[in-house]
Design a protein around this nucleic acid. Sequence first.
DNA 1: CAGACTACCCGCCAAG
DNA 2: TTCTTGGCGGGTAGTC
Length: 323
Amino acid sequence: MAKGQKVRVESVAALVGSRIAGFELGILCQVFGLDRSDDGIPSYDFAVCGPRPGLTPTTSGFAVEVTHDLARAAEADLVAVPAWPDLDAPLDPAIAAALREAYARGAVLLSICTGAFALAGAGLLDGRRATTHWQFADRLARRFPRVRIERDVLYVTDGPVLTSAGAAAGIDACLHLVSRVHGSATANALARRMVVPAHRAGGQAQYVEMPLPAVPTGEGMAEVLDWAAEHLDRDLPVATLADRAGMSVRNFARRFRTVTGTTPHRWLLEQRLQRAELLLETSDLTVDVVAERSGFGCADTLRHHFARRRGTTPHAHRHAFHA
DNA sequence: CAGACTACCCGCCAAG
DNA sequence: TTCTTGGCGGGTAGTC
């Protein structure tokens, strides 16, 4: 899943083991398993598969009927592993083979929470950057020393492999994936339908910093962020933002980091990139005008940041995602 | 793509 | 004493 390139995902397989984590599987069902074509959101050919189809217990006392076997995973465009039950047991060779076959065929692989243990067990995370639930990161590191584990992120993409942190971070990862497949306008529409924020904490698309345990946001800070997001086309030096928040520049920068996990300038840049992406996808404005309206003075600057943060060009993004 | 100019931002330290 | 705030220096990154 190269940065900025459009990814093709039509069939989706959720791969489960001997016990199912209801919430994590539910995330995949919400994102990929519902028909939302009435909202213009694409549908997927979605199935739950595992090594032994049939009634499979969840970790919450009820059971789920798994309808497909591993062949379904081997042929899907996206194979998603929603948490994994056996963190220390060796991975079932049949599951490892199905995952590797999907990978070799060019499928996208996604893990939520401890699902990373299955991908790692299949050897697909060797040498790759990856993440998992913070509680299990050390365990993953011990069992699979070749995995380059990123802590304090919501999700990580490395090539065609997308791993996400605990539980709800899977939603962020799925929305990111949808934006790579269908563009951010579709991902935003889906986020609205699911009533979740489209982008958490102003992180970068492929490397989102963990929003620190919600520090009770200084009222002033939240207002300034909202105001800035509505005036991205203006010049917004940090001094102006600090002034609106009634703080010194130094203190504003410090508080900004504890609240958002990033710096004012980087946050602004990401907001502006997202605005530019949306304008490119949903309008026919010239790249110059898009640059102006999203707060990049000129098209050159927009191109510069598109290349740096998205690995592509504004024109290519429009070509891939324009309705 | 290079180069000059500017803004950012983070460690450090002092003051409240 | 500990915690928060604010100013400064200067390496880094953005802008044109």
